[in-house]
Amino acid sequence: MNVFRLIGDMSHLAAIIILLIKIWRSRSCSGISGKSQLLFTAVFTCRYLDLFTNFVSIYNTTMKIFFLASSYATIYLIFMKFKATYNRNHDTFRFELLIVVSVILALLINHEFSATEILWTFSIYLEAVAILPQLFMITKTGEAESITSHYLFALGSYRGLYILNWIYRYYVEGHLDWIAVLSGIVQTGLYCDFFYLYITRVMKGKNLTLPA
């Protein structure tokens, strides 16, 4: 554990909590892509199957259980409790494609051809692109509520901080997992446009609206 990793995890945790608070307080999931949330739930489910086989630390186990439980809770809120507020007609990204491509890539490029390892690799590839339906939705509507943009900023920062963590681990521990690193770079890269808008608009108290 190093400081980048810890702040990254806290940022991830903050993102999830911000999203749950936004939905719960406003009694609405408007502006949130249910498809991205489904993909994140699939990511956590496939990656954290090792909860049953591999103990790392109390911290690790607690975080995994929280991420799993909160992602299923989010899905429940979007598709059941507050489904009347879900903007289905704006959430039109073909997310099946992301799953298919991630499955194929995981089968072709992995560290070891075993079930758990391929599921882990799939979750890494899928996570890299899971935000695309959400970003697509914002592009389509041309705006996002400020709480939604805080959520996206925290979520995007998390993988960026992991990149610093990987650089640190490479130099200090000699540890390098290029599947996670390359996917993490792609994942962070997808947020670049959003980060720019967030820093230039939301941080100055304006709403996140896309330039026409």
Binding site: H12, D50, N54, V56, H111, E112, W120, H175
Partner: peptide, 10 residues
Amino acid sequence: YHADRYHDEL
């Protein structure tokens, strides 16, 4: 097996 080496991340 790689898992014990790097799947300590979230």
